[in-house]
Each structure stands twice: as C-alpha cells, then as structure tokens.
Amino acid sequence: MRYYVIDERMLSPSWFGGDRVPEIDARGRLLNNDFMPGQNVPPPGTKMVKVWRKSPGEANSTACAVPLEDFEENERRERAAQEAARAAEREREVLKEAVRVQIAKDFNAALEIPARWDPAFKVSVNACGRGYGSGARSNAVDHVLLREDLSIGRVKRKAGDLLCEASPEWVDDSDRKKVYPVTCKVCLRIAKRWKGASSLSRSSAPRSCPAAALSSSRTAWWSPTACSTISSPWTRTTLCIPTSTCIRTTPPISTRGAGRSANGG
C-alpha cells in the first residue's frame, strides 16, 4: 500500500476534523495541506484516505494519505486473511474435538457396563465450569447415568440412578452432543467388576446360565434360581452372574432306582 507523507510543519485544522476521504485539489494539496517534496503525488481529483502511520524505528506517528483504491484493496486482503485464519482455526478445533470424542467413546465402550447408560455430571448451584450457568464445577467428574434397571449382586440401581449413587438429587445429561469419558473413581471401580463379562454373555445362549453347560455332568448341578440375571433390551442378551450357591460340587441325590441297585436288579 502506497503512503504519501503530509508536511506536518503546519497541519490545517481541517486535517483533524474534515472529511476522512478527501480529494486532492487542483493545487495538489489535501485539505489545505502540502505533501512532502520528492513524492510522485497522484493527480488532482484522486480520493485519499487520511491515516496515521508509525514507521519502524520512529517514536511518533506521521500524517499520511493513502489512495482510496489501495486502502480498499488492502482491507479486502486483510479480511480474506482473517477469514482464512478463522477457518483454519475452526478446522483445527473440529479435528481436535473429533479426536477427543473418539477417545472418550473408546474409553466408555471399554467399561463393558451391562446396561444402557450415558455420561452425566452432578449439578451444583452457581457452578459455571463448562460454560455460563452450566451447573458443573471446574473440577466436576463425569458419572455413569443408567438408562435402565441394573441388579447384579450388591449393585442394585434403577433407571436414572448413577452407578456410584442411587437416587441422585441433581444430574445433568442435557449436552448429549458432547461425549465425556467417565472420570468418577467410584463408577470406574464398580464397572471394573464386569470387565470381560460381556464376552461371557455373548458366548452363552440367550437366557441361559454359564453354569448350564455343567448340568449334564455328574460332578456339578445348576440351580437357575440362585443366579443373578439381567435382561437388557439394549444389549439384546441375558447376562447371568453365578453366585456362590449356583454351582455345587455334587449332583442332587436321586432315590429313583436305588432299590433295584441295592438288590442287584
């Protein structure tokens, strides 16, 4: 962009309060101000833009004038460069968010919780950790919010409960577009109990117990009433957790045919 320096020895008052885009008059002056000698000043009638320019190494700004065409072209280039920078930043943010979401999904999927669930956080009044009025503290952790009933051993939860807490007071899962990894230590500790249990349920027939395979053996007996089962419409499988009374070391004693065996019949 071409800058034309104004003679500052006697700037006219119109320079400070006149039109910002004046024209060079017939005498080659701009708002009654002369240009510094030695410059190839544009012809009369050319519209100029008043600017103050601080050259490198100078302490004070200098009064200058720029042709309107040059000024507008420079404005277009700067806007294009700024838009390109914003687009590149948006692309980086989208890529960064996609990587974060994929990592969170992989982490949550590895928990193998045998029920449908979503990540959520407890709401705290006047907390703005994730945005204005979000209800999350800056150190908030994400929990497992169950979408269906879950009952395995001592863990008995209903739909809407947290895995670490039954009947929580305030829970927020409204921001479902964003996926956060579970960071609650208690939820993770409970979920760790079922690590690998999903592969066990997949290898079993629907609505059957893993110990059922032993029912045909003469060294074991299966009691289906002693198992804890989960029927999940989300997983489409029935997961059976054998308890300590589920498998016995010997089959039940049968008296049928005992008399014939004793008589040698």
Rank of each mutant, 00 (worst) to 15 (best):
W170H: 13
Q102V: 05
I113Y: 01
W117P: 00
R20Y: 04
S199Q: 07
T243W: 15
D19W: 03
P233R: 01
L214G: 06
I103Q: 09
S261D: 14
Y4P: 07
V182T: 04
D173Y: 12
V125E: 02
G45E: 07
Q82V: 10
E78Q: 13
D161N: 04
R260S: 15
A59C: 13
R27E: 15
N139V: 06
C187S: 08
A59P: 01
A85N: 06
A226I: 03
A87V: 10
D70S: 05
G129M: 10
A191Y: 12
R154D: 15
A109T: 04
L11Y: 06
P181T: 10
M1W: 07
C184A: 11
Y3N: 00
E23K: 02
A81S: 11
G153A: 12
T235L: 09
S199E: 10
S138I: 06
D142C: 15
A226W: 04
A212N: 05
P242N: 09
W117G: 00
P37L: 08
N33M: 15
F121A: 02
S203Y: 07
W52A: 14
S244N: 08
Q39H: 07
R9L: 13
R86H: 08
R248T: 15
I241F: 02
S261L: 14
A84E: 14
A140P: 04
T219F: 12
T237D: 07
E58I: 11
L31F: 05
P119W: 05
K156I: 15
R100I: 05
R218S: 13
S254R: 10
I103A: 13
C64W: 01
L214N: 00
A65R: 00
D70H: 02
S216M: 10
E148Q: 11
N139Q: 11
R90E: 12
E112H: 04
D161E: 12
E69W: 05
A212M: 10
P13H: 09
G257Y: 10
A87R: 08
S55D: 06
G160W: 02
I24H: 01
L200Q: 12
Y132P: 01
I241R: 00
I6L: 14
K47P: 06
V155D: 07
R248I: 13
A212V: 00
K192F: 04
P37S: 14
